[in-house]
Design a protein around this nucleic acid. Structure first.
Lengths: 146, 146
DNA sequence: GCTTGACTTCGAGTCAACTCTAAGATGTAG
DNA sequence: CTACATCTTAGAGTTGACTCGAAGTCAAGC
């Protein structure tokens, strides 16, 4: 049989950006299946582990809790009878992610507005400085919030 | 002078969805300026407080830490000399938010892929069930990850 | 006058998700 | 053989962001 390529925990930390602590933690709490070992007891991750970790990271990015992720993995382990439940969970999650994206886009607008406001304040401020020795002070920026 | 409209903490919880605990906490750690009080010592939030809270919520949505938000507020309190620093911080944050949006869009793709995969699995599964009494089993879905 | 309800304070408690410590095994380089 | 790096474990500690408990004040209604 062709030997499958495997990775040490260190290699996984480099590939994923997750710490070794976190990788062991994920395994402890059942997000990863027990990772196979070299003769000395060190972990050897395989491609399937890598795919699982990738999936974890994607779902974590969207703010899904480790508990919810574990739930889906649990269902997966129970076989293809759970496919429709998994699909439903994913569809529900898709709505949440879409909502997140929409919110973030709104905040992006807001940030753009703030940047413009601060730029304006900078300009006004510079002007005041230039004229400080002969002209009266200019009013504070009269704008909203912060 | 025209009396400015003010709000009780309860009204603010209703408007913002933040708990009263959280509102007091935000004030304690300096995210809100000390809120003015009624004669009985109860908080009376004004429009400026509302705007600040709105801003806080928007930035929190993007995952900015309370500490970073406080830093910007601190700068704001120091006056318009800090406008350029604030602008730079906001521009840096804008990049992060843009990156977040991009990542979330990628994950959305991934989720769509998973939904399709699970749907496929469902279908195959149903078929297997329908034929269970006379046909041989069908192979597991041979696909990636989870 | 007594109860109810909305608030107040301060300090402590909770939760998720790590993150680290300590002690020990193994492997490689000098 | 010694030194050092890299892993192992179980369990404790940390962080950020709340969240709550206890005790007290105050106004309105019965």
């Amino acid at each position: 049989m062709t030997q499958e390529t495997t990775y040490t925990i260190r290699q996984i930390t480099e590939k994923t950006g997750l710490s070794a602590y976190t990788l062991r933690y994920y395994e402890d709490i059942g997000l990863l299946d027990p990772v196979s070992r070299a003769e000395n007891g060190h972990r050897r991750y395989d491609e399937a582990d890598m795919r699982r970790i990738n999936m974890l990271q994607k779902l974590r990015l969207t703010g899904m809790s480790l508990d919810d992720i574990r739930h889906i993995i649990e269902l997966y382990r129970q076989g293809s009878d759970t496919a429709s439940t998994r699909r439903e969970l994913m569809e529900a999650h898709r709505e949440k992610v879409q909502a997140q994206i929409n919110e973030l886009c709104e905040v992006l607008e807001f940030i753009n507005y703030k940047v413009a406001l601060y730029s304006e304040e900078e300009k006004t401020n510079d002007e005041r400085k230039r004229n400080d020795h002969e002209l009266s002070p200019v009013g504070q920026n009269g704008s909203a919030g912060l």
